[in-house]
Design a protein around this nucleic acid. Sequence first.
DNA 1: GGAAATTAGGAATTCGTTTTCCGGACAGAC
DNA 2: GTCTGTCCGGAAAACGAATTCCTAATTTCC
Lengths: 335, 335
Amino acid sequence: MASHPAGRAGTVRITDVAALAGVSPGTASKALNDTGQLRRETRERVRRAAEQLGFTPDGRGRALSSGRSYTVGLITTDSSGRFSIPIMLGAEDALSAGEMALLLCDTRDDPVREQHYVRTLLARRVDGIVVTGRRTEPREPIDVPVPVVYAFSSSTNPADASVVVDDPGGAATAVGHLLDIGRTAIAHVTGPQRHRSAVERATAAAAAAGAAFRGPALYGEWSERWGRHAAELLLRAQPDLDAVSCGSDQIARGVCERLRELGRRIPEDVAVTGYDNWDVMALACRPPLTTVDLELEELGRHAARMLLDAVAGRPHRGTVELPTRLVVRASTLPD
Amino acid sequence: MASHPAGRAGTVRITDVAALAGVSPGTASKALNDTGQLRRETRERVRRAAEQLGFTPDGRGRALSSGRSYTVGLITTDSSGRFSIPIMLGAEDALSAGEMALLLCDTRDDPVREQHYVRTLLARRVDGIVVTGRRTEPREPIDVPVPVVYAFSSSTNPADASVVVDDPGGAATAVGHLLDIGRTAIAHVTGPQRHRSAVERATAAAAAAGAAFRGPALYGEWSERWGRHAAELLLRAQPDLDAVSCGSDQIARGVCERLRELGRRIPEDVAVTGYDNWDVMALACRPPLTTVDLELEELGRHAARMLLDAVAGRPHRGTVELPTRLVVRASTLPD
DNA sequence: GGAAATTAGGAATTCGTTTTCCGGACAGAC
DNA sequence: GTCTGTCCGGAAAACGAATTCCTAATTTCC
């Protein structure tokens, strides 16, 4: 019956492994962690014993004695947004590959909750923290005695480790594509001017379009409604327009919809590009949108890897910008 | 200088608190945890000392000695989906209120990864696990020695604790609303017949509509494209249709779009209801959709509370169905 | 007034692992 | 044959809190 020598079913301690291998617990620990001076033969014997018993070190004991908890916190100000999610998943992916687990903390954009979470993470002795926001605006850094990496929203302290999207680059790529397919009269429609991402994308789009730019950029909101309205404004002011670069897929979808209703063919008469590669918008649009993918999951992965480095004693400093990826679909190239 | 008597800056142990309060560490522990027999005066003295030093118990030591880790795992098979996210957030909300932290595990629908995560969660001695899926199909239970609650997808073992959405109820509510506003010829358009949720909603919708049902239900896919196509089919077969109940907001949006293109006024000629209350679809639709909100965040909260109960020794068993909420908008009621 | 019961708090043990010392065994050098 | 050095592995001390005894000191009861 007692096929498992452990006390309670399923819980086998390192002392059980040590006993089976005929060594002391300390030696078993060294064998399993590749530390200390042990004969190869001893190491293997312990390993076999551990495997035979299905031993998994108890994270609590390990955390206590090693000083590391093999856990990191993820603080997100808004995980309901579609930006935070892929970042979280990417981070989780990279961390779990590094044998780290991720504690999720959604502050709901409330500084009090954030403070509370920071304290509980610290109480749990996390090895590090990833902080992510829902907007590209830089944010106040958190003050903690462990490594921190800021993802998507950089820290206002330029010395902190941050990883963000190359927004200007993305916008420039989209406009470059419009020029490549021969467009010569390009407008830009985007979100509120108070949003850094809107301004950065618009500025970069204008610069990339050069003489082909039909300004000024139209600022509004991040909605299909605004896209529809903007399409009307554009066509009235510039009937010869042959391309619209948009600050988001939602706006682009609205633009497409109204352009079609006004009798323009897309992309033959007017080519349209979006931004974000938000599949439900980009693919459901008629026609499907050429757009800029933010590669957020990769951003999350990158942030997590930077954090792992920092935990391992190789801290990064400063902000790194990650490239975007242009996804070409029928809104700029006929099938 | 040494304003903090603690060893390393920021880390104050219970022995520091005990020393300041003039008691032994054991007594300090009792005072702070409301256990043991202590004079009220002593308790307060210790509490003041703890507060003065900003003491937060070290989670690692606590976990080791108390046997509880104050941590639960959340296993999601697909957190990219829009269903898992609100559930996660609700769970996280309820758990953090219970002083528990949540370890995030995204299996990406890979059984191998799932197995791996289950093991690491167990190694970390989580107090319990929430399992959530992306579909309403029941799933195989996981075999672990800690409490588990299944959210959204129930366990195939009916004795396990599961909390799911009352899908038939939601569909019936939507159709009931259509009847209330006087509709007498109601069709239903939904997703693939192999999806349990599609069949359940369709069946309940038909039953609720009774004589007003214009069947059979149309099965297709969860997309706007299918919604547009279905609208054509419907109008061709039943020109006198005055209401369409849809299995998702995406389908409903497609239906609305094509109905408008075919000259029908919504809701005057045909009323349309969606399902999911997915804001980007429901609000962007012209007109905005009357739809069924799944209250997923509440579902996550409920699951977490059930888990907290189980951890506290009051396990639940069996499946509980949570009610949906009808959100009425312009697609059934003119402004 | 003495025995029994209650109360308050301290000492020591526990949780499971890692890590720091140390000592024994064995080899090579003179 | 001793002396030094290297190689293994064991014993014990962390790590930080909770908890289980226990022992005084006080109160209650007869």
